[in-house]
Design a protein around this nucleic acid. Structure first.
Lengths: 154, 154
DNA sequence: CAAAATTATATTGTGCACAATATAAAATCA
DNA sequence: TGATTTTATATTGTGCACAATATAATTTTG
């Protein structure tokens, strides 16, 4: 009799599955990253900076923002915290004072050596076939692409 | 020469794919839910309350917490906001004053009628085969279960 | 029954996300 | 060139998440 829309059942919402799993995964990372003194978003920023590499120009805030889909409202305070911990420096670019360039310090690069263990540590404590994770990752990335293509405008 | 661990590449992190897609999906919900005057977490709480139903005992804060994997630190202020908007009432249970019972108001139930359109609206504006989403949802839920089984203790 | 332990919710404090706005510098245009 | 527009980052304010702790009520124990 009641309007028992199965459409609104929590377990039928892909958004909830995504939300719950994302938080569960983040929770798994938390103690591991705590050993590095990083939060999860800070870890992602470090991954982006490590990936940007030491050669070429230092990354701009907006480079990291584009990579992680984060704006300056999120990144500025986060980067200041990483700077305070001595992992990177933030310097205005002389030729264009609007731009802030991010350079990893020695400590920032050293941290990468510790971080190398993180992915394996996570996957190992998981009892899931690795190829299952690869498949899932591909599917997640594929859907993200769909959303981002049609997203900004539509 | 450089320590080019592909393990640390951002695009190889399943955690990043999950993080990015979750935020992209949430962003899709945002304008739709704004019409209902709800944030995304508030929507999930309402889904849980609607699902709990009008019969039987009113939901406890911890019931919703168990369903959504959220603690009182998150739920208490969120529920107060929903109460201020007149969608629910919070009442201490007489027989056990520790417990707070959550009852949807008329407005809370009426909102469900509007919310009925939300899932279809989201899926339709997505150009992805529905069965692909069903498969993904199952996989996400399956992995969540794995994490929660081994998680709390290990 | 009284003391201790447990339970349910609330509070406090930190760190994201994100919208909206501000600031300042550079690029474009009239 | 001077005014306008655009661009890059920063700031402000709100609302989660989550850890740690507080509070108060119930249950368990000695």
């Amino acid at each position: 009799m009641n309007g028992d829309d199965q459409m609104l059942a929590l377990d039928n919402q892909i958004c909830f599955a995504l939300y719950a799993l994302n938080r569960a995964v983040t929770a798994r990372y938390r103690p591991v990253l705590a050993e590095l003194g990083l939060t999860y978003p800070q870890y992602l920023v470090m991954l982006a900076l490590w990936e940007h590499g030491p050669g070429g120009e230092a990354a701009r805030v907006s480079d990291i923002g584009a990579r992680l889909r984060l704006d300056s409202g999120t990144l500025t305070p986060l980067l200041k915290r990483l700077e305070e911990r001595g992992l990177l420096t933030r310097r205005r670019q002389a030729s264009d004072e609007r731009v802030v360039r991010l350079s990893l310090t020695e400590a920032g690069w050293r941290l990468r050596e510790q971080a190398r263990e993180v992915p394996m540590q996570l996957v190992c404590g998981l009892d899931v076939a690795p190829e299952r994770l690869v498949t899932l990752r591909q599917e997640l990335r594929s859907l993200l692409e769909v959303l981002e293509r049609s997203g900004p405008s539509d």
